[in-house]
Each structure stands twice: as structure tokens, then as C-alpha cells.
Design a protein around this nucleic acid. Structure first.
Lengths: 318, 318
DNA sequence: GCGGATGTTTGACTTTTGTCATCGAGATTA
DNA sequence: TAATCTCGATGACAAAAGTCAAACATCCGC
């Protein structure tokens, strides 16, 4: 819903109602329209980001546990959602709020993809930002999902009133050689090079098992994933396999992937990682070891496990 | 209204209502309190900045005239209020919105004073910021007003959930010598030196006539002001007289003032100047000539005059 | 342990807001 | 030109939110 010229009246209604504090009928009288129209305009104003309503996320960051996770893993800010609330989809809601509070006009923002990222996009309020560019951090997969990478990017761009920059290359190719050639294509190379100019990135981590996206999309068989796992694959970041230390796994699969390289990603100053499922503890630890995150949103129980594990491991992750 | 520990429930109510989109009765049921309490908590949440509702100020910045003022006077952004609306106090409301959109957590913010600044403070919404310090840019005057410098500072600090740093020295002293000695006092010197660390400043410009604050407060007689004017005083910035070119006027009065020096003020990267009264055209032009502003809020008619004057003067102000 | 002062919470009532079927102006086609 | 379509605007009704006096709890000094 782009802001068209005729929307001046929407602006005015929003201004009078939200900033001046007039009632809808007063606004209606002032603008000489019916009150019903005022109500309609106000909804448009909220949905288009002319009016933004933000709830503080302090409550979730004020947990003592959050401070400890920040200290142990060297993160800037951690937000923790009580596990009970997570059933109600609080992780995506919180992540969306946090993301919006980190985003600024004029920025370039990188988005990866996955169920979590799409859920965040879906929960995100519309924001009043200018000159924002949203770029896709990795190649695309086929269409068995409603949350394809390009859709995540586009949906978030829409919510932020931003320009979405898609990436029309497959995530995984069948041969290493083809992947290399494609990465050398100017269009693709430029987009990949542009990743390090981002100010903010949003991504989650993936599991290495038969439920992984690459398997569901048919890019890999369950057996192949199992092999990768035995080779040390501990998680997936932007479509690429990492080992338990967070380093790019040296394997055939990774060489066939078209995605932002980890060096570029880690140059992005603010990197928000969001994890919903408790099962993703292993991948998350790998990601934290690789210092992929600067900001983190997760559940209480996962945070507890992170702390417990770091204590027993002697906090080697730092 | 500081956020006390018992306000967890306020946070939760705000979260469920504004972010989850539940109705008040649903929130009441979930938190096991009455709906009336929910309504009360929600108001508290809005008033304390736990929930922030911001209206886009694009409408006022989208004026073609605004672009021209920006170009001619080398300003970053200009916002223009139709003169008709200004009767309703739109200038302070808009200025407050703009100010909030420029303010960020962690910043140090400098505030001058005057009727306009106080009106802005009064119109300002409560914001959810952290680690903000609001400092007073100039010394204090006596108490005939409700808008003493320290009150402007404190009120804005309160709205921003920030720490207010007052400046307990008089604005004008009776002797140059005493002013010099006072400025050398460590407490005062430190505060003055701190001004250049500010990220954002808010001020207006003052007139040089018998209505000037210094006259009303008895720090100067109408005749003395008239003399200053004949010596070239064209406006007042943070309690100090400037000439038409925006330079500090070389006069006895200025040497008796305790206030942030212009070098420091102009080091602040974002300087929002707000002018309400059409009569202040002269002072405003002087301030713009001195490059005191980077952002400007004013009325349509004043903007027109600025453009008209710059055309006839050959835009020497740049 | 008891008045009293202060600050919260609530139920009942009023006002404000959201919604939706319907209307009607202007555009489009047969 | 009449018929049809589209889309924003409206009036009337239902739902939700705001308000306030009264009840209740809590703390303090005596």
C-alpha cells in the first residue's frame, strides 16, 4: 500500500486524531467528511505506517538471564520470551518489535529466510521509514513454501515502506562449477558485494536434519544431510552449513550454494538472530560461536540451556 | 513518572493490547484483573512511554516550499506548518514530533529555553528512550515565568525518560568580571564544555526588543536593549546577542552572560530551530546566516518571506 | 489495635469507535 | 444513451473503550 498523493487527507486525519488528540467526530467536522471515513482513514494511516504504534521491548530485555547471556556470549542485547508465551507466537512479535526499533531511515537491511523470518515479517507493524533498501542475503529455493526467500524480503520491504532488492539465483546448484560461474556474473557479484554495506541484518539459524529446508525442497536427500552432519555440520546460516565452531564447513554442498559470504555478513554492524524452536540449541550455539549475532531473541528455556552449557564448557565460546 | 518495578503488569497489558492486538476485555481475562484496570494501565503505558504513538511528519516536510528553503539556506530538513493551523498550536506539536523523531537512545541532548521551547516540551509525547541526558544550554533567569530554562530542560527530560542536567548559574551577571570568574568554576566549565558532546540541540531565536526575556526579567532595561539594537543586535540565541550575520555581538552584555558558546553549539551535529512568531523573521535570518540550524520548523508565511528575501538579497546567506 | 490518609481496583454507566450494508458519483462498455 | 461496474463515502447499529464514584486494601502514626 504505497502512499499516494490523494492520501493527504489520511495524513491530516492522523495528525488531528493522534497528535492533536481530537476525537473522530471532531476530526470529521474539521475535515468536512463523515466520521466513518475518519475511522477508515485512521486505519489506513496505521496500516501504511503514517502512524506507528510501538510497544517497549524493555520488559523482555530486563530479564537477569538476558544480562547473563549477553555477558557470556558477548552480545549487545538479548531479549527473552517466557516459554509459556511463545505458544502465542510471542517470539515473532517480539522479534518484529525489536527489529523495527533497530531499523532507521536511510539504512540498507539484509534479510535471510526461513519459517521464523517469515513469521517475523508477518507479525511486523508498518513503519514510517524513508530511503530504506531491503536486500536478500541468499539465493532462492523452489516453491513448496509460502516463505520463499524473495517473499520474506518483499514482505519486510513492504512493511518498512522500503525498496526490496531480490536475488534471482537459486540457493543451491547441482555443480560447484556452475555455482562459481554464477557467482562471477556481475549482477550476482554486485548483490553479494553489497551485503557488507548493510547496516542491519535479520536471520535465524537452521537445523541439520531431515526437516531442513534444503531437504524439503529436494535440493538434498535426508541421507546426504546425515553425511554432512557426520562431517561436522552443526547448523545452517543463510543457506550455508557451519560447524560447531561457527566456521563455514568445508564441503561440496557449501561450494554449490549462492549466498552472502560470512565475512560480509559479519561486517554488518547490527545482526539480529532470532530462534524459536528449542530443538535449535545446537545450531544456535554454533552460530554464537561464529559470532554471527550481535542481538538475540530467544525463549527462556533456551537461554537457560545456553548458560548451563557455557558453565559446563568453561565458556570456551568467548 | 519513572517506571517502577510494579509496573510489569503495565508492560504486559500494553504488550498484549498494542502488539498482540487483543481487546481490553481479553487482556483483562488473561491478566486476571478488571477491564477498567486494563484501561487505566494502558493510559499509564502511553503516558510513560512504554507505548509510543508517533505520527509521520512527512506531510509538513513535503511542501515544495520546504525544499526551496532547504536549498537556499543549506538546511538538512525543513518542516512547514500552514499559517491557519498555527493558531491551534501546530508549531509546537510538529516541533515536538520532529524532535522525538530525531532523538535516539544513548544521546546527549542540549536544550535552550523560551516560550517556544516550553510550548514544545508541553506538547511532547512521552518516549521510550534509554540513557539519554538532557543538558541545559544556558544559565537561568529569575522566576516571573513558568518557562524558566531549568524547567524546559527538566520537562523535556521527563518526557524522554532521560536524566536532566541543570545548570545552576544565572544567565546574566552584573559584571563582566564576575561572569568570567563563574565561567572558570570547574562545575560550570565542565557543563559548558559538555555542550559539544551533544548529539542534538533544540532552541528557538529571540527578538531584540522591549519584549525580550532579559527585559521582562529585569536583567536589562528597554533602553539598554534599544542601544544594543543600534549596535547591530539582530537576534538572541541561547541568551546571547547576535548580529545580522549571525556572529556573536561584541558588547558588554554578551560578556556578562553564562551560556554555551557558539563554537560548541555549532559542533552539535543536529540542531533543530523552531520559530513560531512571524515577527521573528529578522532574528531567524540572523540565526540562519550564522548557520545555527540544520533542521528548521516554521510557518508557511515565514518560509515565503525567507525565500522572497533571499531572492532580493541574491542569496548572500550561503 | 484503631482512625485516617493514600492509593488501587472495580462495577455500572456513558461516550467513542469499528463495521458493514447501502448509496451514489464517475468511469466503461454495449 | 442506457446499462453496468468500481470504488470511495455514509448512516445506523453493535462493539469496545473511557470514566467515575464507591469499595477495598495498605500503610502510617498514635
Amino acid at each position: 500500500m504505497p502512499i499516494r498523493p490523494g492520501d493527504q487527507i489520511v495524513h491530516k486525519a492522523a495528525w488531528l486524531y493522534y497528535t492533536h488528540g481530537l476525537r473522530q467526530d471532531e476530526v470529521a467536522r474539521r475535515l468536512e467528511i463523515s466520521r466513518a471515513s475518519v475511522a477508515l482513514y485512521l486505519r489506513k494511516a496505521r496500516e501504511s505506517g503514517i502512524v506507528t504504534i510501538a510497544t517497549s521491548t524493555r520488559l523482555f530485555a530486563s530479564d537477569v538471564l538476558a544480562r547473563r547471556v549477553e555477558d557470556v556470549y558477548g552480545l549487545e542485547t538479548v531479549w527473552i520470551v517466557p516459554d509459556a508465551d511463545n505458544e502465542g507466537g510471542d517470539i515473532p512479535l517480539l522479534a518484529a518489535s525489536v527489529f523495527l526499533s533497530l531499523a532507521r531511515s536511510g539504512q540498507k537491511i539484509g534479510i535471510a529466510w526461513g519459517r521464523t523470518v517469515y513469521a517475523i515479517a508477518d507479525a511486523m507493524a508498518y513503519a514510517d521509514l524513508q530511503d530504506v533498501t531491503v536486500v536478500q542475503l541468499c539465493g532462492n529455493l523452489g516453491a513448496p513454501y509460502s516463505y520463499r526467500p524473495d517473499q520474506c524480503t518483499m514482505e519486510i520491504a513492504r512493511r518498512l515502506n522500503a525498496k526490496g532488492l531480490n536475488f534471482y539465483a537459486p540457493l543451491v546448484l547441482t555443480s560447484e562449477r556452475l555455482a562459481r560461474d554464477l557467482r562471477d556474473e556481475p549482477v550476482i557479484r554486485e548483490q553479494l558485494a553489497g551485503v557488507e554495506e548493510c547496516d542491519l541484518a535479520l536471520f535465524s539459524v537452521g537445523m541439520v536434519d531431515e526437516d531442513a529446508h534444503v531437504v524439503k525442497c529436494g535440493a538434498m536427500t535426508a541421507a546426504e544431510v546425515e553425511t554432512l552432519r557426520s562431517q561436522g555440520a552443526a547448523g545452517v546460516i543463510a543457506g550455508q552449513m557451519i560447524d560447531a565452531s561457527g566456521a563455514l564447513l568445508d564441503c561440496d554442498y557449501n561450494r554449490r550454494v549462492i549466498s552472502a559470504d560470512f565475512g560480509s555478513i559479519c561486517k554488518i554492524p547490527t545482526r539480529l538472530v532470532v530462534v524459536q524452536e528449542s530443538a535449535k540449541l545446537g545450531p544456535l550455539k554454533a552460530a554464537l560461536a561464529g559470532r554471527f549475532a550481535t542481538h538475540l531473541v530467544l525463549t527462556h528455556s533456551m537461554a537457560e540451556q545456553l548458560i548451563a552449557d557455557s558453565a559446563s564448557a568453561g565458556a570456551t565460546s568467548l
